[in-house]
């Protein structure tokens, strides 16, 4: 992925320079409706280039819906999603996919592709015309698999992998898309603790700006530069984790009693939870 990162990096530098003072990702007043119900109400958020921005909130607060709007499964009913100044929903699907990659919660497939084939799909938006992946594509795929330490899986069937292996392979697929923005929807779901930490470390190493929904507030505290709290489809709070994760807010939004403590060795913020009295 070294070559890939280089390309993304330079492109990012030139493009952001053109937009005075703009954030890399800016979501402005986005509302999303599904089946007539408004699930996300005029949400605005922003991320600077290279930042890892977390989206937290209870179940049904609209995290996934908002993310799906960013990776273009849903169109916003109002507002815009801009990446480096370009309105993502004004681009063609293919062009948008060269800039935004997503790690969705979709892990099942009916057809048994090999790991190498699954990763190569990430090159699809970059490819013109018919024909399979080029030699260069294959190299990028191998590099991405090496980066997520899954090179040895290349010849295996995707459906036979464990949850952690699947997540790494899908991560590699997102990397070969060479996105400016990586959208992760609950990337740690169903993973054991070692894999959870691994995936989030990979997300930070990967290079592009990251927008991720997270359930685990301690992981959010430890891995995000900035957090947005969603409650009933609206932003309830935003800022650096230490400012956002206050007991009063957590009680209000999540309905839990939270006690912030410091990690005895690293001094990092940790939260202990109880039910509200």
């Amino acid at each position: 992925m070294t070559g890939a990162d280089g390309v993304t990096g330079t492109a990012g530098a030139t493009r952001t320079a053109g937009v005075a003072g703009a954030e890399e990702l800016s979501v402005d007043g986005v509302s999303v409706e599904l089946a007539g119900a408004r699930l996300v109400h005029e949400v605005s958020l922003a991320a600077a280039a290279g930042q890892v921005v977390g989206l937290i909130g209870p179940n049904g607060s609209g995290k996934s819906t908002l993310l799906r709007c960013v990776y273009r499964v849903l169109r916003p009913a109002g507002g815009t999603v801009r990446l480096a100044g370009d309105d993502l929903h004004a681009l063609t699907a293919r062009r948008a996919a060269t800039r935004v990659a997503a790690l969705t919660q979709e892990h099942t497939a009916e057809f048994d592709f090999t790991v190498a084939e699954v990763v190569a799909m990430g090159r699809l938006p970059h490819r013109r015309g018919p024909g399979g992946p080029s030699a260069e594509d294959r190299e990028r795929c191998t590099a991405a698999l090496r980066k997520v330490r899954a090179e040895h899986l290349a010849g295996r069937g995707f459906l036979n992998l464990s949850g952690g292996e699947k997540q790494r392979v899908l991560f590699a697929r997102a990397l070969v898309q060479e996105p400016r923005l990586l959208v992760l929807d609950e990337p740690t779901n169903h993973l054991d603790i070692a894999h959870q930490l691994e995936v989030l470390a990979l997300a930070r190493e990967a290079g592009p700006t990251v927008l991720t929904a997270l359930h685990d507030l301690n992981l959010a505290a430890g891995h995000c530069d900035r957090l947005y709290v969603l409650a009933a489809g609206r932003i309830a709070a935003a800022g650096p984790p230490a400012e956002v994760l206050r007991p009063a807010l957590l009680a209000e939004v999540f309905g839990v009693r939270a006690a912030p403590v410091r990690h005895p060795e690293t001094g990092a913020l940790q939260l202990l939870f109880d039910r509200l009295p």
Binding site: V73, F113, E117, L124
Partner: peptide, 19 residues
């Protein structure tokens, strides 16, 4: 063919791959 591969992986995946 490439787009069929993406579709076979699921709608969300397909959309995120630009199909």
């Amino acid at each position: 063919a490439g787009r069929l591969d993406a579709l076979a992986m699921g709608d969300e995946t397909s959309a995120s791959l630009g199909v």
